[in-house]
Amino acid sequence: METVIEQVPLDKVIDPSLKKKAKIEVKDVKVWYDDFNAIKGIDMNIKPNTVTAFIGPSGCGKSTFLRLFNRMNDYVEGFRMEGKIKINGENIYKKKVNVEELRKEIGMVFQKPNPFPKSIFDNVAYGLKIQGITDKQLIEERVIDCLKQVALWDEVKDDLKKSGMTLSGGQQQRLCIARTLAVQPSIILMDEPTSALDPISTAKVEELIFKLKEKYTIIIVTHNMQQASRISDYTAFFYLGELIEYGKTKTIFTNPEKQQTENYITGRFG
């Protein structure tokens, strides 16, 4: 079975001038949910156009930490945060920050594919429409470009009016990634994006991530160690709300500095 993603040069589908380099700096970030201290003072710098994997056991704070970058935790009851998160030098937790604008810059893909109950076309066009873009030609071009980027175009080009919900799990996840790309973010957050997918769909999404890092800064939370080692440039290991080790993926997976990291990645944790 052919599983190779269609090669579409990104420069052809996205205007190179739109390429934005997003540098992330995290300084002494602490998070509480009421009295529970979920993140206990983390410093981290993430380079532009890299893939960074967050790993760690359930409840270690990696998803909470990921959701800080697009301020998704703001809606969680009892959420409180200290410290600074700067994207290209701007603290995203300053009061005057427009969260909706911020989220245009920072797209997110979730564990379970969550297409809207709309047509395939409208799913991808949705973000553009709520941004107030009405130029039909531009929307159409962008939808086609994004579907090509996620290697879904050939599979759906004759069914663009069909509901997004009719697609397979793997196709739905790629549709959600296309929807994220449509608003041209500079950072893409992924929270276990392939945990609900079969190996073939997983391979397609992984190949896509590899391709996308040319243009985007990608942060991915994963429980799959092999996935983290396959696709990421940097890996961060979290445990009990602390960042235990953060470094080049090659080093983490061949010779980690901390025993805790070694125990976790070799499956001997606890």
């Binding site: 160690m225 080692s229 997976f253 061949t254 010779n255 980690p256 990291t261 070694e262 070799t266």
Partner: peptide, 9 residues
């Protein structure tokens, strides 16, 4: 077992 780190070495 896809060994990593010490297991891989």
């Amino acid at each position: 077992y896809n060994p990593v780190a010490n297991d891989l070495r």
